[in-house]
């Protein structure tokens, strides 16, 4: 009890690495995300839940720069990211994996990962050195191949991979960016039961590196329970609950909106 309280206090003392202030976006008359203010701290894995259309992916898109917010701000380690392009935000250490598979289909699995590695290493502008001579790049890419158990498929084009492997490659791309902030958007969506644990283990590993901040959009309750340090709930674009997983999942407001009064969450 005492230890838990101390840990929580410490957690709150750590400076947030990523914050959104009144983050809002409107499409015509529709407010997709409405004034979401939230801090994310290093070493903490926050799961974002909410019914379909709650604005979870839109919230992600504003943080990682795919969408520009109507108002409000995104800040990382004191740097304002709000108006930056997606590539600038990526270079500031915010990495994003996508819900729908979003790869370079005709390039090999190894090339896909190497692209993320060389973006991180700032090697994309090297225009005269053959890739084969930059063994450091390839070695680093191969480490992520191994971590995601894709080594034997390194030379296949990404398009030829099975869905589960494409999801893994998506995670490998994010890891290869070596960001400070990891954003996963339903990383196990459409994955078979025997593949999903691989991806979840990888996320758990990232979480154990206490310097990293992890944001995860997820529907599967067993995944949420296994990984979450904290849950925030979005509903109709608004943040309606934020806190300790047990607390949030048992709260009445969450049961009402998220399950539509359908009953027990557990």
């Amino acid at each position: 009890m005492l230890a838990g309280a101390t840990e929580q206090n410490l957690n709150h003392m750590i400076h947030p690495s990523l914050s959104t202030r009144d983050l809002t976006i409107r499409f015509g008359g529709h407010t997709a995300v409405n004034a979401v203010t939230c801090d994310f701290r290093p070493g903490e894995l926050t799961v974002i839940v909410g019914p379909n259309g709650a604005g979870k992916t839109t919230y992600f898109n504003m943080i990682s720069g795919q969408l520009t917010p109507t108002s409000g701000s995104v800040e990382k380690d004191g740097v304002d990211l709000t108006r930056m392009s997606a590539s600038q935000i990526a270079r500031h250490g915010v990495g994003r994996a996508f819900q729908l598979t979003n790869l370079f289909p005709q390039l090999s699995v190894l090339e896909n990962i190497r692209l993320a590695v060389q973006a991180q290493a700032g090697d994309g502008r090297r225009f005269f050195t053959p890739v084969a001579k930059l063994s450091e790049l390839t070695a680093r890419a191969e480490r992520y191949l191994e971590a995601t158990k894709l080594s034997d498929k390194a030379e296949l084009p990404a398009a030829a991979l099975a869905h589960g492997d494409q999801r893994k490659l998506e995670v490998a791309l994010l890891m290869a960016m070596e960001p400070d902030i990891y954003m996963f958007d339903e990383p196990t969506a459409g994955m078979s039961l025997d593949h999903a644990p691989d991806v979840l283990d990888l996320i758990a590993e990232i979480k154990h590196d206490h310097s990293k901040t992890v944001l995860l959009v997820e529907h599967k309750m067993d995944v949420v329970r296994a990984l979450a340090d904290r849950i925030i709930v979005l509903h109709n674009g608004e943040l309606i609950a934020d806190g300790d997983p047990g607390e949030v999942m048992s709260s009445q407001v969450v049961k009402d909106v998220y399950l539509g009064n359908a009953g027990e969450m557990a």
């Binding site: 590539s87 979003n102 005709q106 390039l107 692209l115 993320a116 060389q118 502008r125 225009f127 790049l137």
Partner: peptide
């Protein structure tokens, strides 16, 4: 070169190239 791979990446998926 690495630049060549970036060019192909832009051809394949411009938004993701920007994203990484």
């Amino acid at each position: 070169s690495p630049l060549g791979t970036v060019l192909k990446a832009i051809r394949e998926n411009e938004a993701r190239a920007e994203g990484i």
